[in-house]
Amino acid sequence: MSAGSQSAGALRPKLEAYLSARLEAPGLRLVTLWRVPGGASRETWIADAELPGQPGRRRSFVIRRDPPASLLDSDRELEFAFYRAFAGSNVPVPRALWLERDPAHLGSPFFVMERIEGCEASPRRVLDPSFEPARPRLARRMYEILAAIHAFDWRGTPIEGVVEPPAPEECWRRELEHWERVIDEQELSPQPVVRAAIRWLRANPPPPPARVTVVHGDYRVGNLLFSPDGEIHGVLDWEMAHLGDPLEDLAWSFLENWEWGRNGLKGGVVAAEEAIAVYEAAAGTRVDRSALHWWDVFSSVKAQAIWLTGARSFQEGRSTELIHAMTAYWLTNFQDEVLLRSLGRAP
């Protein structure tokens, strides 16, 4: 539990009062309320509500609540805007309902979405041998949907109100400067491997993208809600979304971190070249492998910045979430190893 966060018991009456008022359903009762494990940034809660006078009729909600500290310093309004923008598009997202900035309701700001039922977003599930028949479909849909995210016309949508589009030639620099600043502020100890990588990135910038697109920012199997047949019903966790170079998402989805020991299969589901072929066919573009390599190195720098942020939050007591300590102990060195491989300095 985070310092200052609440247990389900403490949250329940507040959430019942909030939903009762929102749905104009006095006496609404929460049948279940539980926190989703695995989240390291915003707290995610699942709530099933029974409406008064309608026994057996339930509505299921997802509540994304700000914690006192997280791996990310993200903006709930930004995430909410991206969910709103993609509603009804060919990129499946849960329906975003309400955004609340007032901490009086639940102790900190939050937003509420409708829950997509019958699905899971579990990397462990895709590694289960019983999922093997569904794996090709999940892999194909993952990269078709990524192409759809990048084809999405964000002009005139809520996205315009929360992010500034960079010039194409500024995409790499904006992201690199942002994450370098995070490392400057958050590192507890000097990081010679990541600093060498940053110098390499500055010395070898990628060409500008043909088009500035929506970038999900954390596109990986763990953020996809999929059914047992491998179909994807929701793309989650838009808290790092921004406008930029679409190759950033492709490279992030290929990070070794998400292979879960299934050597060579990106996200545990697909070989890189197979994923690129699906993406290229869906997007109608060719992926520049050299630029993709730049974004691959960048992805490890960004990941390291996230692990270092969690480490400092834990060290300074702004968070007591054990996941921050675990990711720092486990992933900081792992990320350095990945970087050394990406830079051709280790086999």
Binding site: N333, D336, E337, L340
Partner: peptide, 11 residues
């Protein structure tokens, strides 16, 4: 040395 440092830290 950087490569060696990751070996030393590996868990």
């Amino acid at each position: 040395e950087l490569k060696e440092s990751t070996r030393r830290r590996r868990l």
